[in-house]
């Protein structure tokens, strides 16, 4: 299965990842051989499977009571922040004045 470089570049953008040209090249080759393996499922007849009927075994009948519970404190939430100030996460400017 041939993969175009352009396609992988688009995926990298969706994934918010950067690759060097060399990395992209290796990546395309590996990707092709993985997809070759994955193609195995094409041969299975799945016409008698209705995905709506085979949800994972989650018991939706037993939803939680809507009661207030103690969550993590602000200190706990911020303790791993790469950058924080006055109880908030700091991020680069996203909306600039006059733009």
């Amino acid at each position: 299965m041939a993969i175009e470089k352009q396609e992988v570049e688009k995926l990298a953008k969706l994934s918010r990842l950067k690759f060097t040209d060399e990395e992209l090249h290796t990546f395309i080759k590996e990707f092709e051989s993985i997809l070759e393996q994955v193609k195995a499922i094409d041969s299975v007849d799945t016409s008698n499977v209705d995905l709506k009927e085979c949800g994972d075994r989650v018991n939706f009948d037993s939803l939680q009571e809507d009661i207030e519970r103690q969550g993590l404190s602000q200190t706990d939430i911020l303790m791993n922040a790469p950058s924080a100030k006055d109880g908030a996460f700091l991020v680069p400017i996203t909306v600039e004045e006059g733009k």
């Binding site: 995926l11 990842l17 993985i34 991020v91």
Partner: peptide, 28 residues
């Protein structure tokens, strides 16, 4: 450079090769 670049740079530097491969395959 900006917020989006922060995502790119942090993820590209933070994740190893196999993790990147699976993210890409997953998004594919």
């Amino acid at each position: 450079d900006d917020l989006v670049d922060l995502y790119y740079q942090s993820r590209t530097q933070g994740f190893g090769k196999e993790v990147k491969r699976r993210i890409m395959l997953g998004n594919y």
